[in-house]
Computed example of a mutant assay.
Amino acid sequence: MLYQPQGGIWIRIRHRFGPRMTEWMLAAITALWGAVLLLPAETFTGQAFELFRAARISENLMGTVMLFLGILRIAGLVVNGARREVTPWIRMVSAGCGFMIFVGISTAFALSGSVSTWLAVYPVFAGIELVNIYRAAHDAGEGNAVP
Score class of each variant (00 low, 15 high):
S114C: 06
M92Q: 15
N60M: 02
V78S: 02
A82V: 06
E59Y: 00
I71A: 08
P123K: 02
I101S: 04
I90R: 14
L77I: 05
F125S: 02
V103T: 09
A120D: 09
S114D: 13
I128T: 09
I105W: 05
S106P: 04
S114H: 14
S116H: 13
M66K: 01
T64H: 04
C97L: 15
G81M: 03
F125P: 01
L119Y: 13
V103G: 01
F102I: 02
M62P: 00
V103F: 03
V93W: 13
I90Y: 13
R73I: 03
A110L: 15
I71K: 03
F99L: 15
M92P: 07
I74H: 02
G104Q: 01
V103D: 04
E129V: 05
T64R: 01
V115A: 11
R83Y: 11
G81A: 03
G81I: 04
S112M: 09
A108W: 05
G113D: 05
E85W: 13
V124G: 08
C97E: 10
E85G: 10
T117G: 12
V103M: 11
L69P: 04
S94A: 14
I74A: 11
I128N: 07
V86G: 08
N60P: 00
N80E: 11
I105P: 00
R84K: 15
I128V: 14
A110T: 11
A95C: 09
G127E: 04
V79T: 10
E129N: 11
W89V: 15
I71Y: 04
W89E: 14
T117S: 12
V86S: 14
G81S: 08
M66F: 14
I128Q: 08
W89S: 13
C97R: 06
R73N: 13
G96E: 10
S58M: 03
W89I: 15
W89P: 03
S106V: 07
G98P: 05
V124R: 10
G104C: 01
P88R: 12
R73T: 14
M66I: 01
G63P: 00
G81Y: 09
G63C: 00
T87G: 10
V65F: 10
P88L: 09
G104I: 00
M92F: 15
L119W: 12
Y122Q: 11
M92H: 05
L119G: 03
V78K: 04
A82M: 10
M66Y: 12
V121S: 08
S106Y: 09
G63A: 00
V93H: 05
G98T: 10
S106D: 08
L119I: 14
W118I: 01
A120F: 15
I128C: 07
G113I: 09
G113K: 10
R83E: 13
G104D: 00
S58P: 00
L119S: 11
